Simulated scan of single mutants.
Amino acid sequence: MQAKAWLIAIMAASLQGCGQDKPAPEAAPTATGPRLTIAASETPDWQSVSAQVTTQDQAQVLARIPGLLSTLSVRAGDMVRKGQVIGRITDSQLAYQSAAYGAQAAAAQAQAMQARAELDRVKFLAANGVYAKARLEQAEAGASAASAQTQAARAQQASVRAMAGQGAVVAPADGRVLRADVPAGSPVAPGMVVAVITSGPMVLRLDLPEALAAKIRPGARVRVDGMAGEGGVTRIYPAVTAGQVSADVAMAGLDASLIGRRLGAQLAVGTHRGIIVPRAFILTRYGLDYALMAGKSGAVTQVPVQTAPADDGRVEILSGVAAGDVLVGAGTGAGR
């Protein structure tokens, strides 16, 4: 009996020691930091689209006469001014035509001088009764015809010279040369593109699926990856090309040195009710986002949430909390 009582006493002492090793339950943390009561608000729906840095227009430098491109003084990337001569087209036939019309003008001038002298002689004789009035009128008509022939020959020569002057390749606008890939010495025809020059202000051109054509409006907000601030749609092109609609966006800070550069952008195509909170109310651990939610008793619970970027460095909470919940700012000393 004594041995049995001794064994029972040892077992009781062991159980008592095990109970003392069990930690006491932690007290629920309390919300001591800044709090935010969640409320839903209208937030834009962002659609990812492709964008290209370009100018509002592109001016083509065209050949106006046939001939050989004797000189081209610009290359892709050069800046030009409106009216600047950047090349010249020559046509050897124009020189021969100008010389021929010049000879005709000289011959017509000699005939006109002869007709004028004959008219003066006939006038003198007619005044003295030698010639009749009909003979005087005939001499006046001959002098007028000779003068007209002189003027026609000179006009033809001036026309050839003006055509030769159109061989100057002139920049139609201020801008940067995008393409100038016709080498000097190449034959060109009227209307052939010799160079392409940017024209107008810098814009961001969006390539949108035609399904978004009915949703986009002038003034719609646009964000660009890697750029601060936002832009607005200024122009929507009224045509669908290969299933896409183009729109221009006015955006500050575009790099004019890389025309044609592709960028990622987001276009606001509508709104929805969402929960937007400052980033300070979200904790991120091992790639997962959490929010500290305060209960009615003041205890803080850490709940996982799903988030998406929003405006001004804020985030939108997609799931995990609801309107009316109270969040505690992260890093305020609340329980984690």
Rank of each mutant, 00 (worst) to 15 (best):
V303M: 07
L136E: 03
V240L: 08
L208M: 14
K296A: 09
D248C: 11
I276G: 01
S48A: 12
G298E: 05
G329T: 12
A330Y: 08
R273Y: 14
V326R: 10
L62M: 13
A214V: 06
V160T: 10
G142R: 14
A158S: 15
G232A: 05
R261H: 10
Q93K: 13
K22F: 15
G167W: 08
Q20T: 06
I276D: 03
A51V: 06
K22A: 12
A13P: 10
A105C: 00
G142S: 11
S48V: 10
G243W: 15
V160C: 14
D207I: 11
A9E: 10
R64C: 02
L136T: 06
A59Y: 00
G333V: 02
V203G: 02
L69Y: 01
T37E: 05
G83K: 03
S41T: 15
T90R: 14
A268T: 10
A145P: 11
F281L: 00
D57N: 15
A106S: 15
L68T: 09
R261V: 12
A171M: 08
R135N: 10
E140A: 12
M113Q: 14
R35F: 01
I275K: 00
F124K: 11
T332K: 03
A180P: 02
T54G: 09
G19K: 14
A31P: 13
D174S: 11
A108D: 03
L136A: 03
G274W: 12
A100Y: 08
L204C: 02
G77E: 08
A127G: 03
T30R: 15
E210H: 06
Q157H: 04
M113Y: 04
R261M: 07
A265D: 06
A5N: 11
L292W: 00
V85C: 09
T54Y: 10
I197N: 04
A280Q: 00
T30E: 11
E137Y: 14
A250W: 07
A189H: 07
Y101C: 00
V328S: 04
Q114G: 10
G200P: 00
K123L: 12
V196P: 02
V300A: 05
G270T: 01
A214D: 12
G142P: 09
